[in-house]
Design a protein around this nucleic acid. Structure first.
Lengths: 137, 137
DNA sequence: AGTGAATTGCGAACGATTTGCAGTAAGTGA
DNA sequence: TCACTTACTGCAAATCGTTCGCAATTCACT
């Protein structure tokens, strides 16, 4: 289902701002800051305002189409994905790599079994050094 | 080793602001926002300024005495603890519970073995509903 | 094309955190 | 105990990502 269809299906209007913000996120398939997104949106259309970008992002977040993450100072966004996919964040180059770790589901079960806490979503982030940074001495 | 000793050992001065901020964190043993901390510090001494609280917190963070976490909008701080201890955050009452999950170390090993990423620290947060909120219907 | 409401652009407001600076007080050595 | 040095503080102003109010625009439907 395209973003247009998703929006229309829930009675939201398909606008240039929303379409472009989605397009940028979808093309990047990585963690982008609001500033990154705005900049790339401007590559397509200078006239889109930052407010509209923020508004599109929060709408998408509500519809669970994107996932917002706080990395250090600022927020980043990426298309939503399963929470068993964890984030490996390189401390040197700041890149974020996805890693599908089935163990995450064990962790989820463990918490469900041992405690009386009922998990809904799990968020695993690992900081460290990525391959290219560690091989670059 | 007391906070005074830790500070002195690294040639930082022991000041009222630093002592009180540490005392508040240590007493609470939970996640406090900067505003919470300031308020509790003021219970001891009205004259401490928020800048000093922020400055103390970032010093402590550098010395790895505290752990800063972004929860939604704002940052929270707590005394540092092992990263195999994960955070269970209740979506209803916003409380954060600690849970010692040995599985975290498996996850760490798994990443180390399967990928070429070298983990240094791991951060697991689980959102869900805590016992008292789920029993309160 | 015409209508009404949803959405936008704009600029101002916001609020947590930070900074510059002059004054204060912690540590040191006499 | 008393100076002396300078790290640290309080204050107020600045910063900066994000949000808001509102008039103008644009979308969806006829």
């Amino acid at each position: 289902m395209s973003i247009d269809e998703v929006l229309r299906a829930q009675d939201f209007r398909v606008t240039r701002a929303r379409t472009l913000v989605w397009q940028v996120l979808d093309e990047a398939q990585s963690h982008l800051s609001a500033a990154d997104i705005l900049q790339r949106v401007h590559d397509y259309d200078e006239s889109i305002n930052s407010s509209s970008v923020y508004r599109a992002l929060s709408l998408f977040a509500e519809l669970e189409l994107v996932r917002e993450t706080r990395q250090g100072e600022l927020s980043t966004w990426e298309p939503a994905h399963d929470d068993a996919v964890i984030h490996l964040r390189c401390e040197l180059c700041d890149i974020t790599i996805h890693f599908d770790a089935p163990t995450v589901n064990n962790l989820r079960k463990q918490v469900g079994n041992i405690t009386n806490f009922t998990p809904t979503s799990i968020d695993v982030r690992i900081s460290g050094v990525c391959e290219s940074c560690s091989s670059a001495t």
